[in-house]
Amino acid sequence: MKTAVDSLRELCDKVPRVDRETTAVLRTNIDSVDACAGDLLWKVEGHYLLRWTLRSLISVDLTSAAIPYGQRLTDISERLLGRTHPMTLVARRDLARAFSSPATRRTPARSYRRTSPTRTLDWPVNYKDALQLAMGVSMP
């Protein structure tokens, strides 16, 4: 498992994000490793690959895939690492970026309805609202 993760990580660091075809192939391979490894992936620093996948989806405006992926990533990170772990906070920040991306604002709001402890947002109109929604906290 560690060898596969290390190889994919090396490729992720080398492939430019503008190379859509190669990044799509990498995302597919990362999804395959994730499906086979499950929680074990987190024990061999594989969460880097999962975060890379989320950022890759955001960078090519695939928010319809990025938002559920980011929500799953955040949920797993909270379960395995804890709510306040730095990697969980990074996952939440990336999820907020997906919520606040321009592509999300062009998509029908009902697709992304999510309830925070203080209110329900159809889609965030700015980064602060997106971050609040992803973090699940209220900000002044």
Results as ranks from 00 to 15, higher is better:
A109I: 05
L89W: 03
D31E: 07
T28A: 14
L41I: 13
Q132W: 10
I76G: 05
L49A: 02
M135A: 10
Q71D: 01
H85I: 02
S77W: 00
D94A: 03
A37V: 04
Y112P: 03
S116D: 12
G46R: 03
C12V: 11
L62H: 09
Y69T: 03
K14N: 15
R83S: 14
Y48S: 05
A66C: 05
Q132T: 11
L131S: 09
D75T: 04
Q132K: 08
Y48F: 12
D6L: 02
R72H: 02
A35E: 07
S56Y: 04
T28Q: 05
L121C: 06
I76P: 08
Y127L: 09
S116N: 02
D6P: 04
R79M: 12
K14T: 15
T104M: 02
A91C: 01
T28F: 11
L54S: 04
I76K: 08
S101E: 06
W52H: 05
D34H: 13
L26N: 03
T23I: 04
V5M: 00
D13P: 15
S77C: 12
D19S: 01
H47A: 11
S138N: 15
T104K: 04
S111K: 06
E10R: 14
S64L: 13
H47D: 03
D122E: 13
V90R: 10
D94W: 04
A35K: 05
P86H: 08
R113M: 10
R106V: 07
A96P: 06
T118Y: 06
T28R: 02
I30H: 08
P124I: 00
T63D: 08
L73S: 00
N29C: 11
R106F: 12
G38M: 03
R114D: 10
I58M: 00
M1E: 04
S111C: 07
W42R: 09
T88M: 01
T22L: 14
L41V: 15
S116R: 00
S7T: 11
M135E: 15
A91D: 13
T84H: 03
T22A: 13
M1C: 03
M135C: 13
L95I: 06
S116F: 00
T120D: 10
R20E: 07
L89S: 01
A65H: 11
L121T: 09
A98D: 07
S59N: 14
R119V: 05
R114V: 14
S101F: 09
R20L: 13
R9I: 05
V137E: 11
A65N: 03
I67Y: 01
S111L: 05
W123V: 14
P16G: 15
C12Y: 12
T3N: 05
N126M: 09
A91N: 07
V5F: 04
T84K: 04
I58T: 08
D122F: 14
A134N: 05
L26T: 11
D94F: 00
S59H: 07
T107I: 10
K14R: 13
A130R: 07
V25P: 01
S59W: 15
E78T: 07
A24W: 01
D13K: 15
E21K: 15
P16I: 13
R55C: 14
A91Q: 05
P16H: 13
T84A: 10
G70W: 00
A65E: 12
Q71W: 01
N29E: 10
I30V: 14
S64D: 06
R83P: 09
C36H: 11
T74H: 02
T120I: 11
